[in-house]
């Protein structure tokens, strides 16, 4: 095996990992969009908060790391629920542009909140993990291929989490209510379903996944600060659009594809490394001009 193919295989795993993280965030965008036709601009920042929650649970409350993550998942879910209740619910009947602008404001609010209460400097899980920090550095070797243990963990946890998500959406009562609402809100409310509660649950579910993604992100790229979620947030949104916004499968597919394409591009053409972030946006423009409904989305018909 030559060096090149080793690199490619290693980066295939990298791509799967980054793509998985995009997918976990993207499903949050797509679920909310499917129901409210709203881009929850603050979703990336909710992910940032998920990182901070876990961090402070471990540092301040002295929780073991695993418990800290569980705490963060619940805290972030509640945060997502509250964001919807406080900022978006009052604007359900307002023009869509108002809701979108409010979402931008919410993103800005969470970022400044983090600056004020958590500080604008970089933080890291490395110190807090202490002796356990080996999970970040440990690597597996198969022949010449070196894969960090954390990469494998992230991929496995992502798959597992997505499985749970699909189970919730397709096999439970609340999931059925979510799907019903995304098809037709007025009718669903007539069926005696508490629409606001289901929407709140959707936000909570998406946020919980963002928290999981966030913690893994912070383990893989150990430094985080209040604007950490901005970039992955945007990329995940692009992934959701890529796969067809509103479609759960689309978001997962889009996430993995975007991650793989991004990493592979850098592997094959290392000189474009600096422009990595610009690339996702070019994909966005391209997909929107060629197939605006995304890979798995349905085409919408203009009604006059």
């Amino acid at each position: 095996m030559n060096l090149n193919s080793v690199l490619i295989i290693q980066n295939l795993f990298n791509g799967l990992m980054v793509g998985g993280l995009y997918a976990l965030i993207a499903v949050g965008y797509t679920m909310v969009y499917g129901i409210l036709r709203l881009i929850n601009f603050a979703h990336g920042d909710i992910m940032t908060m998920g990182i901070y929650f876990a961090f402070y649970a471990v540092v301040l409350m002295k929780m073991p790391f695993f418990l800290g993550v569980i705490f963060s998942i619940f805290a972030t879910a509640i945060l997502g629920f509250l964001v919807d209740r406080i900022a978006y619910k009052p604007l359900r009947n307002a023009p869509r542009i108002s809701a979108l602008i409010t979402a931008i404001g919410m993103s800005f609010f969470i970022e400044s909140f983090a600056v004020v209460f958590f500080g604008s400097n970089y933080k890291s899980f490395l110190k807090t993990l202490g002796s356990n920090s080996s999970i970040i550095f440990k690597t597996y070797k198969i022949g010449k291929i070196i894969i960090p243990q954390i990469t494998l963990y992230v991929i496995l946890i992502t798959f597992f989490t997505l499985l749970i998500l699909f189970y919730i959406v397709y096999k439970t009562k609340i999931g059925m209510a979510m799907r019903a609402i995304s098809a037709d809100i007025p009718t669903t409310s007539l069926m005696g379903i508490n629409v606001d509660l289901v929407i709140g649950f959707t936000f909570a579910l998406g946020s919980a996944l963002a928290a999981i993604a966030g913690v893994m992100w912070a383990l893989r790229y150990p430094n985080f600060y209040p604007y950490t979620g901005f970039n992955p947030g945007l990329k995940a949104f692009i992934a959701a659009v890529f796969g067809g916004i509103g479609s759960l499968q689309g978001a997962v597919l889009g996430g993995f594809l975007l991650g793989l394409i991004e990493i592979m591009l850098i592997t094959l053409f290392p000189s474009v490394m600096q422009y990595k972030d610009a690339f996702a946006f070019l994909i966005l423009i391209l997909i929107l001009t060629i197939k605006p409904s995304g890979l798995l989305g349905k085409r919408s018909i203009v009604k006059v």
Partner: peptide, 19 residues
């Protein structure tokens, strides 16, 4: 002082304005 508080106040005003 409190770093970033200015932006927190601004964004709060912004969200309240929108709602």
């Amino acid at each position: 002082g409190i770093k970033g508080l200015r932006l927190l106040v601004i964004s709060t005003i912004f969200i309240l304005t929108m709602i």
